[in-house]
């Protein structure tokens, strides 16, 4: 299955802008997907989510928030869109 990932914002002192569709095994959980995607995105997602409350609160699956403790039990489907976002200053 293919899942689109948007990972964007300042994470661990790096500006990340990642928007790609990735092929994942069927039944893959969000937690497993994050392990696979972090190398491609160039950011240690697990560390970032542990350190930043605001990023941990901004994990979305098809536009709805997924709480951090539920990443392991949330399985992805073909065509899903996953966002991990760090807020940026407006003005």
């Amino acid at each position: 299955m293919k899942v689109r990932f948007f990972i964007r914002g300042y994470m661990l002192d790096t500006f990340v802008s990642f928007d790609r569709k990735l092929r994942l095994p069927d039944g893959c959980s969000m937690a497993d997907a994050f392990v696979r995607v972090e190398k491609k995105a160039g950011v240690k997602l697990s560390r970032c989510l542990a350190e930043s409350e605001v990023v941990a609160e901004s994990i979305l699956l098809n536009g709805e928030r997924v709480p951090l403790p539920r990443l392991s039990e949330t399985t992805l489907s073909d065509g899903d869109e996953v966002s991990v976002l760090s807020p940026l200053a407006g003005g």
């Binding site: 964007r8 914002g9 976002l85 807020p87 407006g90």
Partner: peptide
């Protein structure tokens, strides 16, 4: 600040549809 628009719309920071909508649903990234 333009760099913040897509992220803020998606994560809810930016209100949409006169504060009645959700960016991630009504104005997806």
């Amino acid at each position: 600040t333009t760099s913040a628009v897509s992220v803020s719309t998606e994560n809810g920071d930016a209100p949409v549809k006169n504060w009645t909508g959700a960016g991630s649903k009504d104005f997806p990234l």
